[in-house]
Computed example of a mutant assay.
Amino acid sequence: MKHVKDMVAEANAVLDCIPAAEAAALLQDPGVRLVDLRDVRELERDGMIPGAFHCPRGMLEFWIDPESPYAKPVFREDRRFVFYCASGWRSALSAKVAQDMGLRVAHVSDGFKGWKEAGNPVAAYPVREG
């Protein structure tokens, strides 16, 4: 059996891993799109990185693939995508998949937890009416 911890380590070995303390500088970079992979309940409870795009982990491949009926135009932007989750595990696996699908990608290695611990800004998740 292959364990998740091993899969995360393998992904991190081939990815650009950015510590949260350094990731704040990316907020001002127009060539970067931050992508939050957490569940909507996590966003509602904890907030998110200001300006980040929310893509639920379960929809990632479908939203990236331009031939999918669920494709999102954001993933066709000419940008570097920086994924994050709560602790860096989901984002490592997701970034590896996105890299395999052809995106320029990195991930926040210590996740949103590290982001908050570094004192970086947090925005409320915009709750939709109706």
Rank of each mutant, 00 (worst) to 15 (best):
E77R: 02
E61F: 06
Y125G: 08
R80H: 13
A21V: 09
V108E: 11
V127K: 08
K113L: 15
G114Y: 03
L27I: 04
P50D: 05
E67F: 03
G47R: 00
I49P: 10
P19Q: 09
G130Q: 10
P30N: 02
Y70E: 11
L34Q: 05
G51D: 13
P30T: 01
F62G: 04
V4K: 13
A9D: 06
A24V: 15
F53K: 12
V108Y: 15
P50L: 14
R79M: 09
F83D: 04
E22F: 11
D16A: 12
F81G: 00
S94W: 11
P56L: 15
L93Q: 10
G130A: 15
G119D: 07
V32H: 03
L27Y: 01
I18L: 04
L15R: 04
D29F: 00
R38F: 13
E129S: 14
P69W: 06
V108L: 14
R128N: 13
V14A: 14
P19N: 01
V40E: 10
K5E: 12
K113N: 07
E44N: 03
V14R: 11
R76T: 06
G31N: 10
H3W: 02
V108N: 04
R45V: 00
M101E: 11
Q28V: 01
G88V: 08
H54L: 07
A24K: 07
G119N: 04
I49T: 11
A123S: 15
I18T: 09
M7R: 13
S109C: 12
M1N: 04
Q99C: 03
A106Q: 15
Q99P: 10
A24Q: 10
A20K: 01
G114L: 02
G47E: 05
N12Y: 04
D110A: 05
F112Y: 12
E42C: 14
E22P: 01
R128K: 14
C17F: 01
E22W: 09
P50V: 04
E44L: 07
L15D: 05
A20W: 13
R104D: 10
M101V: 14
A13P: 02
I18C: 01
F62R: 08
P30H: 03
V122K: 03
W89L: 07
A11E: 00
F83Y: 12
E77S: 01
F112P: 13
P66R: 09
S109Q: 15
H107D: 02
P50Y: 08
K116H: 11
H54P: 06
V4M: 12
L37N: 00
V105G: 06
M101L: 12
V74G: 07
P66N: 01
P19M: 00
M101F: 14
V35P: 02
D36Y: 10
P50S: 08
P50G: 05
F112T: 08
M101A: 15
V127F: 07
L93E: 00
R90M: 14
A71P: 09
